[in-house]
Design a binder for these strands. Structure first.
Length: 752
DNA sequence: GTATTATCTAAGTCT
DNA sequence: TAGATAATAC
């Protein structure tokens, strides 16, 4: 057994050993916060507290998983399995599924993700014939989400002249009606959105004292990580749950609060102090992560913020190198410089790729980076952006699955009632929705009793609807007979998805097919690893999954590309923060308000403090944004950094290559080629361009070579067909078999 | 009702 | 620029 208490410094040890009572740990970046949390939980269990009685709320599911594993090794038994540990959303959805009947939901309720919610709002706006210039789904949704997070129901909204006035001015008089309808439709569809998971949990424990009591007794020890990023509802729920025992430990850092847009409220830290007057504070101020230069640089930045809890972050680590700020001509050059620098350091210092991270303010910035890294054959992985689970083909398959579990799910029905095309169009769908809405029933209720209602549809359409109902029913009937994998396989085959995807031989089509295959593989793994291998179990938290939750083995040693938000809690030896420009970072949306600006500064603080050994900052004078080049100015944050800790422009600006930007060239060609124009001259010139393009990107892949593919792993090239951009390689992958891949999309790396 | 093409419009961070 | 929507032809 590891003697865990030996590995802590005095303040960490004090925080770990203080078992009873309310306590707050203020933990600077790199100060061993996760260590304190894991050791504290391990210590609780070691002193005889039952793991069943511990609740730990983390910020990501990945963090929870890692922590659980570490606790398991520390305490050397499997008791850690009994811990309740996860994000607020996943823990609360688990409680809600157990207690669903109390609030008139089925335990199999659906979780609507952002796009489900927005689609629903969009159709409500359409049904109400509202002016879509004033009623934009995303704005309405944000507003609803904000209200929910501030605990304001539609009725509460109606009672607030102030809120009503705000919407009146914005010409959104019908807002409260939309809000009301949205809730009603979610409920009827047996669905909760992300905010409902919190709100309904609050309702549950607020209105059912026996349930509150049950969980108060169960969760005798509560730990909350990243407390600075909890919102008001989360605060209220924790407060209620902890009220009986008051054994609550919150861990956070006000300087790293970066989620106010999601309702996070630093006020929660102050509330904690007034709620539990006899609380104890532990400050972790020693940074073990970064060089002293980086720690001082971060301090010099964050001192510009007015709102702060007093603390002094310091380190014993050696000085290290200065931070480099690099000016570049445009975003493409920025990408090139970053990738050149990475490969240079990698060559000199023999590091792993996983030691590098490139961080940015917005997801859109990843593109120029990707291009540069690919050109240098540097393996990378992008986090965030379009998640695997938000791809159309994946959502389609999951919509079938959702219907099997909860046929009332309106968004799922809308998604697939005509996918694959079965002749049920918009008009029919509108009739169904309106009838259901009028009768206060779900669409499925109408479908299964279609004879009973006068929908004014012709017999052909009616037959098609009946066929659809029959199809879904056939899955529902057999859903307990098969495990999740078998059932989804049946759905894909019988539902016509397989046929639809398989017949599409375009590049995108092949890609979609592969994605569905990957989903199936994921479900197969799930079935192998759990006893509860029915579809119900698989679907339970699928809406709460993110890309990080299904990390692949061969993704491990890669350069990380992610937003700063996503990088919270992580650390890397080498960190690049790109796009240090006004209007981008700080974002243009925040520069008008002091609070907004302070939050952006905290965000930059988070970015800086991810770095262990070296930090590189860069900005471009020109950036391709919103379809055109715009002039940029360096970020004001750069001026706020201590100049003594910085070297400007140490990286030499590489000579601009003479070729045009391949990406642009390619999209242009794709567009031209698809217009089927038979202008010979044009095609000729396109061919020449493509030749150039494919030569630059494919790095001369030849028969017999060993190559690496991001998904399939290592393989050998057997055959190459086609010309230029249409070049296809037949490759044999170990353990997977033969695949035909289009070279320009396959992102192959030659292995020597 | 469906598939294709032309036009318009928005543009952030995440569970 | 890219995604959504409107317009058009089948």
């Amino acid at each position: 057994m590891i003697d865990y208490l030996e590995e802590l410094n005095s303040s960490q040890l004090a925080a770990v050993k203080n078992i009873e009572g309310p306590m707050m740990v203020i933990a600077g970046p790199g100060s061993g916060k996760t260590r304190v949390l894991t050791y504290r939980i391990a210590h609780l269990i070691k002193t005889g507290i039952d793991a069943f009685n511990i609740l730990a709320l983390t910020f990501t599911n990945k963090a929870a998983k890692e922590m659980r594993n570490r606790i398991e090794t520390i305490i050397n038994n499997s008791e850690a399995h009994n811990l309740w540990m996860g994000t607020f959303h996943s823990v609360f959805s688990r409680i809600l599924r157990i207690e669903a009947d109390k609030i008139n939901y089925s335990p199999n309720f659906t979780i609507y993700d952002t796009s489900d919610s927005r689609n629903l709002i969009k159709s409500i706006i359409k049904e109400m014939n509202l002016d879509k210039d004033y009623y934009k789904p995303s704005i309405i949704h944000n507003r609803i989400s904000n209200l929910k997070n501030n605990f304001i129901t539609p009725d509460g909204y109606e009672n607030s002249p102030e809120l009503i006035q705000t919407d009146k001015i914005a010409k959104r008089d019908a807002f409260s009606k939309i809000y009301y309808k949205y809730n009603q439709r979610c409920f009827k569809a047996g669905a909760m959105d992300f905010d409902d998971l919190l709100l309904n949990t609050y309702h549950l424990i607020n209105e059912f004292p026996d349930i509150l009591y049950k969980y108060q007794n169960k969760f005798q020890y509560i730990l909350v990580d990243e407390y600075q990023d909890t919102n008001h509802i989360q605060y209220l729920i924790i407060k209620k749950l902890a009220a009986l025992n008051e054994n609550i430990c919150v861990v956070g850092d006000d300087a790293q609060s970066i989620y106010s847009f999601r309702g996070a409220d630093i006020q929660n830290i102050l509330n904690f102090q007034s709620d539990y007057p006899d609380y104890l504070t532990f400050k972790l101020e020693q940074n073990y992560r970064s060089t002293s230069n980086i720690v001082c640089l971060a301090n010099s930045l964050i001192n510009h913020n007015k709102k702060q809890i007093n603390k002094e972050i310091w380190t014993n680590n050696h000085k290290g190198e200065k931070t480099i700020i690099c000016k570049t001509i445009d975003d493409n050059e920025e990408g090139r410089i970053v990738s050149n620098t990475i490969s240079e350091i990698q060559r000199k210092e023999k590091t792993l790729w996983v030691d590098y991270a490139v961080l940015y303010r917005t997801n859109a910035q990843s593109r120029s980076l990707e291009e540069a890294l690919r050109r240098k054959n540097i393996p990378y992985k992008i986090y965030g952006g379009l998640s695997f689970y938000s791809r159309k083909e994946i959502k389609d398959v999951l919509a079938y699955c959702r219907l099997c579990i909860n046929p009332d799910d309106e968004e799922a029905i809308k998604r697939i009632i005509n996918y694959p095309a079965r002749g049920i169009g918009n008009t029919t769908m509108q009739k169904l929705i309106i009838t259901a809405d009028n009768l206060n029933l779900s669409i499925w209720d109408i479908l299964i009793n279609i004879e009973k209602y006068d929908l004014k549809i012709n017999n052909g359409t009616k037959q098609r609807l009946e066929d659809f109902t029959q199809l879904i029913n056939s899955f529902i009937i057999t859903k307990d007979k098969y495990d999740a994998y078998e059932l989804v396989e049946k759905i894909i085959k019988n539902g016509g998805i397989y046929h639809d995807l398989f017949s599409d031989k375009s590049i995108e089509g092949i890609n979609r097919f592969e994605n569905v295959q990957e989903l199936l593989n994921g479900i197969k793994d799930f079935c192998k690893n759990t006893k509860e291998n029915k579809l119900d179990s698989f679907m339970q938290d699928v809406a709460l999954l993110t890309n990080e939750d299904n990390e692949k083995e061969n993704d491990k040693n890669k350069v990380t590309l992610m937003t700063i938000h996503a990088a919270k809690g992580l650390e890397f030896p080498y960190v690049f923060v790109i796009g240090m420009e006004e209007n981008l970072f700080p974002s243009i949306m925040t520069i008008d308000s002091k609070d907004g600006l302070e939050e952006e500064r905290r965000l930059f603080y988070v970015a800086i403090t991810r770095a262990e050994k070296r930090l590189f900052l860069s900005y471009a004078l020109n950036r391709f944004r919103w379809g055109k080049y715009i002039d940029c100015e360096p970020s004001r944050f750069l001026d706020e950094l201590d100049k003594q800790l910085i070297d400007f422009n140490e990286i030499k600006i590489t000579k601009k290559p003479t070729y045009k930007k391949p990406y642009k060239l390619y999209t242009k060609i794709k567009k031209e080629a698809s217009t089927k124009s038979s202008n010979l001259k044009k095609i000729d010139s396109i061919k020449n361009n493509l030749k150039y393009f494919s030569n630059t990107l494919n790095e001369n892949i030849m028969v017999g070579q060993n190559v690496q593919h991001s998904r399939f792993g290592n393989g050998k090239v057997i055959k190459i067909d086609g010309e230029y951009a249409n070049q296809k390689a037949t490759i044999f992958f170990k353990g997977i078999g033969q695949k035909i891949l289009l070279l320009k999309f396959a992102k192959l790396k030659i292995i020597k």
